[in-house]
Design a protein around this nucleic acid. Structure first.
Lengths: 128, 128
DNA sequence: CTGAATCCCTGCCGATACTG
DNA sequence: CAGTATCGGCAGGGATTCAG
C-alpha cells in the first residue's frame, strides 16, 4: 500500500513489487543476483563473445588479448558456477574446452543491451 | 561484416555494432559506462528509492537503515558525479538536502527492470 | 542535519610460475 | 592446451570521529 505519487504503472519488479521492499543488498534480491553474475572486470566482454556463438578457451583468449589466462579462467569458472555457461571438455589431443551459454546465459543478451543503451544515450556531466 | 551464424537481427548495440568490437573494459564502452554508474554496493537500492520520488538524506537513511552515513554519502556523491542525481540544498534550519533523479537517472528504470527480470527468472544451479 | 576525514580490513586484479 | 597455485598491490566498504 505505498502511495503512488509519481504514477508508476505497477510494473512487475520495480519499484512496486513486494520484493522491491528489500532494504539491504542481500542475495535474495533479483537485482543483486544479476549484478553478482555480471560482477568482475571483463565479465561482460566474455559474455558478449559467447553471445556470438560457442568458443574455446583459446578463441576467447585470442578475442580478448589483454585478458590474462588466470582472469579468463576465473571468469569462466565464475560464470559456470552462476549457471550462465556450460563447459564441454573434448577428449583427445590437443585438449579443447568449449564454452557455450546456457538458456539463462542467452537471456543476458537483453540485459547487456539495456546496459549498452543507457551508456550510449548517456550525456556525461562536465568533469568540473 | 561479421557472419551471422546465430541469426542476430543486427541490434543497435550488441553484438553486431562496430563499437561492440571493444576488446578491453575501457571507459569508452557504453556497457562499462553504465556498470560504472551502478558500481558499488547499495547503489541500485538508492536509485530504486529515488525512482519512487525525491528524497532527502534523512529519508534515504530511514529507508535503508543498514546503510551507514558515510557510504550513503559516498553513493550520492558518486551518482551525482555520474549525472544520475541532482542535489538541492535548501537553506534554513534544519538544513535539508533533496535528491532527485536527472532525466538520465530516470532512464535507469528500465535498466534496473532488466536486471530484476533476469535475476527473478534465473534458475540457480545446484550449489554442489 | 548533512556530510567529510580517517583507519582498518577484505576481496579483487594482474603477473608469474607450475600441473594434467 | 587448459587450467591451478601463489603472491603483491590496490581499490572498495564499513565504523568511527569530526566539521559546516
Amino acid at each position: 500500500m505505498t502511495h503512488q505519487t509519481v504514477g508508476h504503472p505497477a510494473r512487475p519488479g520495480l519499484p512496486d513489487d513486494p520484493h522491491a521492499d528489500v532494504n539491504a543488498p542481500t542475495s535474495s534480491c533479483p537485482v543483486e543476483i544479476t549484478l553478482t553474475a555480471l560482477r568482475g572486470r571483463w565479465t561482460t566482454l566474455v559474455i558478449r563473445e559467447l553471445l556470438r556463438g560457442d568458443r574455446t578457451f583459446t578463441e576467447l583468449r585470442a578475442a580478448l588479448p589483454a585478458l590474462s589466462d588466470k582472469v579468463l579462467s576465473d571468469r569462466l569458472a565464475h560464470l559456470t558456477r552462476a549457471g550462465v555457461l556450460d563447459r564441454h571438455r573434448r577428449s583427445g589431443w590437443p585438449p579443447r574446452t568449449h564454452y557455450s551459454l546456457t538458456p539463462d546465459g542467452h537471456r543476458l543478451g537483453p540485459v547487456l543491451q539495456a546496459l549498452w543503451d543507457w551508456g550510449a544515450g548517456h550525456r556525461p556531466p562536465p568533469p568540473a
